[in-house]
Design a protein around this nucleic acid. Structure first.
Length: 848
RNA sequence: GCGAAAGUGGCGGAAUUGGCAGACGCGCCAGACUUAGGAUCUGGUACCGAAAGGUGUGGGGGUUCGAGUCCCCCCUUUCGCACCA
């Protein structure tokens, strides 16, 4: 240990020692309790950014902490290395995605190592390497066997000029991002995974993770699945054999239905319109709606004017036999519920708006409950059924009116009983719908795992046999940027013998969505070199579920719902035991920086020019200070505003710790508890030491890392206040200082591991690594104060403080407080109404 | 439009969950050491006031001996959802 702190020197030293020692490799046969700390695996874009640094600093601090607490810690890292940017780079620069990706990985891995992150590098994985994506393909085949993977045609965004498929983002506003042509929808065949089969579990099992996941993420998961309880009702169509099925969550309002409205795509239209005079008109309208929808961005939909047309046909309300006109309208969607609704203008805002526009009758059938009593509907005689004036739809629950024999019932009862009635009479019944759609995984792209399917002219669609996996991506694809899968242009890839009959056949040229790779990667970490299975079930069961997962909340829906789905599939395959893959989730906040020339803080980005390069920070301040600052500057879930002066403060702190350790290093050797009494100053220091240990330990469990660092700073300040010269210190003073310093160094390790290791060595612990040191233990007795300063209030205002023994009785405390001269002067002749004594806390004298 | 969360010094943020508001750091001010200081160290720093004291956690009301914390209304900001029947 040098006299001065030179980050670059010691950081390199310890990184090398850790690597040589393979210090952070987890062992499957370690008997200690396990802890799985995981950060979301990065995309190898080329450079680490500050968001990564924050993410990994949090994860690494936790991994270090758990290691020091005696856990067998698994802390792995890998690369989400399939995906679009590699293909874009290939198109732009005429290089192969593989070369671009590998180069980026090499560079970013160097950056990670310079940060000194304590990963188990022996478990590194990368999605684009065949030993990984082989198992994507294997899982696909297993899902195919289980009926969980299937192919169907569906509408995608299509640019008619370039003849290519576009993602939603690429056709934003209905305009092709490259050529500006108006895009259309096109039906193409795509592979899907049947995630909807798990919709119910994806909602229900939230109970299991409720305590460990952020509320807002759980809400978004629930919303995404969109479970909705209600009822189906079949409306017979007059003069036809057809029925229209409707889904509603408000069957209690069915007597208020004044129309049936169906989606433009509804198949029943063709049937009921066959002989209708209105056929052409309605068909034209439906076509217009479909065309408009194809070019609409999704967020514009809600603002769109409601449009409809009467088909001239009628449906029969099974509850009262009433005839309802059948309309087609743009606000009814084919892909939700049944693609048709009963329109109840009085009690649904959308139906109300629609009814106003087309002057459909509004009939109130739910009355609000006022003071526990039913009130009569306004402007309407009891029992009447005429259309009435309403200013808004009344959408709350209430009491049924104008609803035949159901009148007088409360909405919640009516919902249940009317659905049961529909079931008994066989025209409907209780039903649950979900917004969740099956997961389309086909991509007409090169840089992904090939879908292991072969099309044979004789045998049809044939799964690639397991023994033939992996289906390798070729090395020589051409990237034209037309949007066609580049694999189509590689005959060696496409042309293959049919595995069944041996005749010439063709491979599927679509590749998988990269979310497939990231759905199960953290299971692969548990057994990354397995050549016969994605992972050994018993090993994965030992390590999973993940104890703490850390990442950005941009993945609150997609990735996390896919990985929860995948976990459940793997459970049903017998590969894992748990229902949920992740016990605790932390969504860390963004790292922002001032945008040049403004007062605004925005996420660091190249285009805004407000990015900060981690390498520059490491060079200027060291990895330890960079990491420390990132964790100290804000609570982990908050936005983190970058500050150059802030990071200087972190360096300053580390330097002061260093100086303190250096001062005491020589005399800090004796670990025996001295027989002589501790001075007041030494007792105060020990109190602070033990209070800090207790506080840091609690805060770590809550991941309150910013207050944790503050506690360490306080401990250093207390050491500064302990104004004793090491050269002439008594044995008890040396002991107290040593205790504080060693605790400080060990507790600093999760934040700034290099400097902590160096100081630990400087304190005479040469030979062993700090990671094997024991976490300090808080002694509650030593942490106790030997006197308390109790605030004394008069009428709730602070007027004085008294110093008392911690074990003072309530009566004594009251007496001492009342005897206080200042308090006396404030009471001064007034009558004492009562005295509130909160033991250990405060006294409040109430006077009048 | 609907829903949720959050508003605390010049700034990032603390506050044992109803009990001393502003821990810790940044910044700023003063001093020391220095040829020098964008280094280091010491002290100060919510606001008003010379002081006694008063005021203070977005605004207004309420509950309570006591409210940053609980309840009601309003304002602002951020995020999420967006015709989901």
């Amino acid at each position: 240990m040098d006299e001065k702190y030179y980050p670059e020197k010691i950081e390199e030293k310890w990184q090398k020692l850790w690597a040589d020692d393979r210090a952070f490799e987890a062992r499957d046969d370690d008997e200690r309790p396990k802890f799985y700390a995981l950060e979301m695996l990065p995309y190898p874009s080329g450079f680490l950014h500050m968001g990564h640094v924050r993410n990994y600093s949090i994860g690494d601090a936790l991994a270090w902490y758990k290691r020091l607490r005696g856990f067998n810690v698994l802390h792995p890292i890998g690369w989400d290395s399939f995906g679009q940017p590699a293909e874009q780079a290939a198109i732009k620069r005429g290089i192969q995605p593989r070369d671009w990706t590998e180069k980026n990985i090499a560079h970013m891995e160097g950056q990670m190592r310079r940060l000194g992150l304590s990963y188990d590098w022996s478990r590194l994985i990368a999605a684009h390497r065949p030993d990984y994506y082989k198992w994507d393909q294997w899982f696909f085949l297993k899902m195919l066997e289980r009926g969980l993977a299937y192919k169907r045609t569906s509408a995608v965004n299509w640019c008619p000029k370039e003849e290519t498929v576009l993602s939603n983002e690429q056709s934003s506003g209905g305009i092709c991002w490259r050529c500006g042509t108006q895009t259309t929808k096109k039906e193409i065949e795509q592979w899907y995974l049947r995630i909807t089969k798990y919709a119910e579990q994806l909602v229900k099992d939230i109970d299991e993770i409720e305590s460990g996941w952020p509320e807002k993420v759980l809400k978004r998961q629930r919303d995404w699945v969109g479970r909705s309880e209600g009822a189906y009702i079949d409306f017979k169509i007059k003069d036809h054999d057809e029925k229209i099925r409707v889904f509603t969550t408000r069957i209690d309002t069915i007597f208020g239905a004044t129309a049936i409205v169906v989606a433009a795509e509804h198949p029943v239209l063709a049937k009921v319109l066959q002989d209708s005079a209105l056929k052409d008109q309605v068909t034209d309208f439906a076509a217009q709606v479909k065309a408009a929808r194809a070019i609409k961005t999704e967020d514009a939909a809600a603002d769109e004017e409601k449009l409809g047309i009467n088909t001239g046909q009628s449906a029969i309300n099974p509850f009262n036999g009433e005839l309802l006109p059948i309309w087609v309208a743009n606000y009814v969607l084919m892909d939700y519920g049944a693609g048709a609704v009963m329109s109840v203008p009085a009690h649904d805002e959308r139906d109300f708006e629609f009814a106003q526009k087309y002057t459909l009758p509004v009939r109130q059938v739910i009355a609000p409950i006022v003071h526990g009593q039913q009130s009569e509907p306004a402007d309407q005689a009891p029992g009447g059924d005429q259309s009435i004036e309403m200013k808004n739809a009344f959408t709350d629950y209430g009491v049924l009116v104008n609803s035949g024999s159901w009148s007088g019932k409360l909405s919640p009862d009516a919902l249940r009983e009317m659905a049961e009635h529909a079931a008994e009479k066989d025209f409907g019944g209780p039903a649950v719908t979900y917004r969740l759609r099956d997961w389309g995984i086909s991509r007409q792209r090169f840089w992904g795992a090939p879908i292991p399917i072969i099309y044979c002219p004789d045998c049809g669609m044939v799964a690639v046999p397991e023994k033939d996996l992996p289906v390798l991506l070729p090395d020589n694809a051409q990237f034209t940027g037309t949007g066609e899968s580049p694999l189509k242009g590689v005959p060696e890839f496409v042309n293959v013998a049919c595995p069944k009959c041996g005749k010439p056949a063709q491979r599927e040229t679509d590749t998988m969505d990269t979310f497939v790779d990231s759905s199960w990667y953290f299971f692969r970490y548990t057994d990354p070199h397995n050549e016969s299975m994605p992972f050994d079930s018993s090993i994965a069961t030992k390590w999973t579920p993940v104890d703490q997962y850390i990442g950005g909340d941009s993945h609150a829906v997609m990735h996390l719902i896919y990985t929860r789905f995948w976990n459940k599939v793997m459970r049903d395959m017998g590969l894992v035991n748990s229902n949920e893959p992740v016990k605790r989730l932390l969504t860390q906040g963004m790292v922002t920086n001032r945008v040049e020339g403004t007062d605004e803080f925005k996420a660091m980005s190249k285009s805004l020019g407000n990015g900060v390069d981690p390498d520059d920070m490491i060079e200027a301040f060291g990895a330890d200070a960079t990491r420390l600052f990132v964790l100290f500057a804000a609570p982990v879930e908050n936005e983190l505003r970058w500050s150059e002066t802030g990071i200087e403060g972190a360096v300053r702190f580390l330097r002061r710790v260093w100086t303190m350790v250096y001062r005491w290093r020589a005399v800090a050797g004796n670990a025996d508890v001295p027989s002589a009494d501790f001075s007041d100053a030494a007792r105060a220091l020990r109190r602070k030491t033990h209070q800090t240990i207790a506080r840091v330990t609690v805060d770590f469990e809550k991941l309150d890392l910013n207050t944790n660092v503050a506690a360490l700073m306080e401990l250093l300040n207390a050491l500064g206040d302990f104004n004793v010269d090491p050269a002439s210190a008594s044995a008890s003073d040396v002991f107290a200082a040593r205790e504080a310093i060693e605790a400080l160094v060990v507790m600093l390790a999760p934040y700034s591991p290099h400097v902590a290791e160096e100081m630990w060595e400087g304190l005479g612990h040469a030979g062993g690594l700090l990671k094997d040191a024991p976490w300090p233990t808080a002694d509650a007795e030593l942490a106790k104060k030997d006197e308390l300063e109790i605030p004394v209030q008069v009428n709730g205002k602070l007027r004085s403080r008294v110093i008392v023994a911690p074990d003072i009785s309530e009566d004594e405390l009251r007496t001492i407080a009342l005897a206080d001269a200042k308090i006396q002067s404030f009471i001064d002749g007034q009558k004492i109404v009562k005295v509130i004594v909160v033991p250990q806390r405060l006294v409040n004298v109430v006077v009048k």
